[in-house]
Nucleic acid binder design. Structure first.
Length: 314
RNA sequence: CGCGGGGUAGAGCAGUUCGGUAGCUCGUCGGGCUCAUAACCCGGAGGUCAUGAGGUUCAAAUCCCAUCCCCGCAA
């Protein structure tokens, strides 16, 4: 076997960029990058190119974008004739015809310890559910979502101060290493494949609209895990007077009281809210129209808006 | 041309409706009190009020115009 492969890379968000970089640095022939189409995003509906596209253009790699790759891009893939395809958070399911193009198959980088957390939001779900560790898995891509044979895995402990964003950043880097090792073993002929234990499968579906509203009847620990896991995306929040107040960092605090009620509101002592079990100290928050800031800063300037005794809506 | 909020001292805000000495809570610096302190008292420094040799005016943070940046919603 050759020791440098001709590869088509399929990926979309920031998470996939380190893996793309790695392939190039390792000297593989990344002959094309396929990514999701540019989308109108943000204020003003400006068209935004996916991070992987931006990086590919910097690297001088041809970029192709399809609404439906399986229908529109099959011929291109066949003409490119890659040895191997790599997917990393691409965002589309691939047809069996597409998967059949590269002789060495299609390998996916997934941000969980499969068979746990198959699906679109494995990183945030792991933090939100209070897991002590998560990781990255490489596996062969099959037609069922994240169900292919496992190739290589790396484990990452989730620290108490970790957020969805911090874990995502770490796994993004780790994933490049996992993928590198996977390809090295593939080339060396020592790669082993392990079927997933179907009895241990769990799913991490995409977050539905409205997700992230804090349920203050949960335990203080559960609330804090939701807040940090959902930070920065999709975001955790509480409603007060019809306003959505984003909560971006919290700690378990002393005390107890009515769930959702502000037990203390003081620039020095902090913002304490009752939980179903215990209480949480809101450390950082974001009021509509304002920047994210420390709770103390907010109370110093706009403390009238979050006074002791006020009740977050359930 | 998607809808809306906002840019005032190192931080968070008030003042803008009805133009007329730039203020509050903190932080910071100095001093005091205290066994001590994130407490308390006294004093000080710190701001071209986002930008524009813009417009109106005797006078603009405030009214008008343009531009830049930030945030929420919606996608």
């Amino acid at each position: 076997m050759k020791n440098k492969l001709r590869i088509v890379f399929l990926g979309t968000p920031e998470f996939a960029v380190p893996s793309l970089d790695m392939l190039v640095e390792q000297g593989h022939d990344v002959c094309a990058v396929i990514t999701q189409p540019d989308r109108p995003k943000g204020r003003g509906h400006k068209m935004i190119a996916p991070p992987v596209k931006q990086r590919a253009l910097e690297l001088g790699i041809p970029v192709y974008q399809y609404e439906k790759l399986s229908r529109e891009g099959l011929q291109l893939l066949q003409e490119l004739a890659p040895d191997l395809m790599i997917t990393a958070a691409y965002g589309q399911m691939l047809s069996s015809k597409v998967l059949a193009v590269p002789p060495y198959g299609c390998i996916n980088v997934h941000a969980s310890l499969l068979p746990e957390y198959r699906g679109a939001a494995p990183i945030e779900r792991a933090v939100i559910e209070g897991k002590a560790q998560t990781g990255v898995t490489t596996m062969y891509t099959v037609r069922a979502m994240d169900a292919g044979d496992i190739l290589e895995q790396d484990i990452l402990p989730i620290l108490p101060e970790d957020t969805g964003g911090s874990v995502r950043a770490k796994l993004s880097q780790i994933g490049a290493g996992t993928l590198q090792r996977t390809i090295e073993k593939l080339i060396a002929g020592t790669l082993k494949r392990t079927p997933q234990d179907e009895s241990k499968v769990t799913y991490a579906p995409m977050f539905e609209r409205g997700f992230g509203k804090v349920d203050f009847t949960q335990s203080a620990q559960q609330i804090c895990d939701l807040i940090r896991g959902a930070n920065p995306e999709p975001g955790a929040y509480a409603m007060l007077d019809g306003l959505k107040i984003k909560l971006t960092f919290a700690q378990v605090a002393q005390g107890s009281g009515t769930p959702g009620q502000i037990l203390m509101s003081d620039p020095k002592q902090g913002l304490i809210v009752g939980a179903g079990d215990g209480a949480v100290r809101i450390m950082r928050l974001q009021y509509p129209g304002a920047k994210e800031m420390d709770a103390g800063d907010f109370l110093r300037g706009r403390g009238k808006l979050l006074q002791q005794g006020m009740q977050f809506e359930q």
